[in-house]
Amino acid sequence: MASPAVDDYLKTIYHRTEWQDERITPSQLASELGLAPSSVTEMVQKLAAQGLVSHRPYGPVALTEKGHRRAAAIIRRHRLIETWLVREFGYAWDEVHDEAEVLEHAISDRLLEGIDERLGRPRFDPHGDAIPDAAGHVDREPFVLLADAAPGHVGRVLRVSDRDPDILRAVESAGVTVGARVVVTDPATLHLDDVVATLPPGAATTIWLTA
């Protein structure tokens, strides 16, 4: 079962509950992966047989401890590579995802360790996503999605989703970066010091702040 396809399933399941608690269903998994529901059902059954996920018919899919360790390992690779590409090769944060998708399956454990050491063992990637350590553990502060933040909320930008490169570029153009301290006026408007940042449509569901 060691294959990029399996890793893609496990990563998708892992991502689902990183920033919210609702588990992913097989139909949502099929939509995320762009696959037929029947294909996903068959693969989920195989993953369950391998002890990588737990699942009951028509219910959500969850990673087992074994599945979580494997998902965290491949996500660690992906996020370290993204960080490496930004820091060492001058990639923009909206350009690294697709490159990392390819390289995460190609580099050796030795090279990955060298990258981690060279980068100073970073805890977060350029988008603010936590990089699991070698044991699969992550550190993450309490957070709130911008769309759910009350007017007047003060916090730091913890994460900007890399799902939509156009939104990433627009958010960056507005001056909003990971680590920036902001005050929420409404889901489309943030204050950064004396600057008012107007966000593009959809950005409020891609930005997470300290709670």
Rank of each mutant, 00 (worst) to 15 (best):
V96M: 02
H97P: 07
H97D: 15
H97Q: 13
H97F: 13
H97M: 05
H97N: 14
D98H: 14
D98R: 15
E99W: 13
A100H: 01
A100Q: 10
E101Y: 11
E101I: 04
E101A: 12
V102E: 13
V102N: 07
V102Y: 11
V102M: 11
V102C: 04
V102S: 11
L103C: 05
L103H: 08
L103D: 00
L103G: 01
L103V: 04
E104K: 14
H105V: 02
H105W: 11
H105P: 03
A106H: 14
A106V: 14
A106P: 03
A106S: 13
I107N: 04
I107H: 01
I107K: 01
I107F: 01
I107A: 00
S108Y: 05
S108R: 04
S108V: 02
D109E: 10
D109R: 04
D109K: 00
D109G: 01
D109A: 10
D109T: 05
R110Q: 10
R110Y: 05
R110E: 14
R110W: 05
R110S: 11
L111E: 12
L111N: 02
L111G: 01
L112R: 07
E113F: 05
E113I: 01
G114H: 07
G114K: 04
G114W: 00
I115R: 03
I115E: 00
I115W: 02
D116Q: 09
D116S: 15
D116R: 11
E117T: 12
E117I: 06
E117L: 12
E117V: 11
R118F: 12
L119V: 07
L119T: 03
L119R: 08
L119P: 07
G120I: 06
R121L: 06
R121H: 15
R121N: 12
R121G: 03
R121W: 06
P122I: 07
P122F: 06
R123G: 11
R123M: 13
F124V: 13
F124C: 00
F124T: 13
D125L: 01
D125S: 10
D125P: 07
D125W: 06
D125F: 01
D125E: 10
P126N: 04
P126A: 09
P126D: 04
P126E: 04
P126G: 09
P126M: 09
H127Y: 08
G128I: 06
G128V: 03
G128R: 01
G128T: 03
